[in-house]
Computed example of a mutant assay.
Amino acid sequence: MPLETPLGASIRWHRLVEKGVFTGLSIFPAVAAGEAILRMCVMSGHTPEMLRTSADAVASVLRQPL
């Protein structure tokens, strides 16, 4: 998911970790300078409930101001 800035992405990454959702934070040079993304991997061991919980956490964190 693309995010606004590397600092904003770091803040959101940390908030997700606090909710138990682990993502990969990618910043330059993995993405363009000044940009950042969070990468999520879905695996066969994840249950539908886990995916819903993660999606709810991501939605909640993205709605929060930085």
Results as ranks from 00 to 15, higher is better:
23 T>W: 03
32 A>E: 11
7 L>R: 10
22 F>K: 10
65 P>C: 02
3 L>R: 00
26 S>L: 12
62 L>K: 06
26 S>H: 12
17 V>Y: 11
22 F>I: 14
31 V>T: 08
34 G>F: 11
5 T>Q: 03
45 G>T: 15
65 P>T: 13
47 T>M: 09
6 P>S: 08
44 S>P: 08
29 P>M: 08
52 R>N: 09
15 R>V: 00
23 T>S: 00
39 R>W: 09
62 L>Y: 01
45 G>E: 05
1 M>K: 03
52 R>W: 05
49 E>D: 15
3 L>G: 04
54 S>L: 10
21 V>Y: 12
35 E>K: 11
57 A>K: 07
7 L>T: 07
22 F>T: 12
55 A>Q: 13
61 V>G: 02
2 P>E: 13
17 V>A: 05
60 S>T: 02
66 L>R: 04
60 S>G: 02
40 M>G: 09
37 I>W: 02
52 R>P: 05
42 V>E: 06
54 S>W: 11
47 T>V: 05
12 R>P: 06
9 A>V: 14
61 V>F: 01
44 S>N: 15
8 G>N: 07
30 A>S: 08
47 T>S: 11
55 A>T: 11
24 G>Q: 13
53 T>G: 00
26 S>I: 11
20 G>I: 15
33 A>D: 09
53 T>Q: 10
63 R>E: 04
58 V>H: 01
38 L>I: 14
25 L>C: 04
65 P>W: 06
36 A>E: 07
58 V>P: 02
38 L>F: 07
58 V>M: 01
48 P>K: 07
11 I>V: 12
56 D>H: 11
30 A>R: 05
38 L>C: 04
56 D>W: 05
32 A>P: 00
40 M>Y: 13
36 A>W: 12
4 E>R: 15
46 H>Y: 00
16 L>S: 01
55 A>I: 06
43 M>N: 15
10 S>T: 08
22 F>G: 00
48 P>R: 03
15 R>I: 07
23 T>C: 10
64 Q>T: 09
56 D>A: 15
63 R>S: 11
60 S>P: 01
12 R>G: 02
61 V>C: 02
4 E>D: 14
12 R>S: 09
30 A>Q: 03
49 E>P: 04
52 R>C: 13
31 V>H: 07
29 P>R: 01
7 L>D: 04
17 V>C: 01
4 E>M: 08
32 A>V: 15
27 I>M: 04
20 G>K: 14
16 L>Q: 03
57 A>W: 10
38 L>Q: 02
41 C>T: 15
47 T>E: 09
25 L>G: 02
18 E>L: 14
50 M>D: 14
25 L>N: 09
26 S>Y: 15
28 F>W: 11
51 L>Q: 10
26 S>W: 12
35 E>D: 05
32 A>T: 15
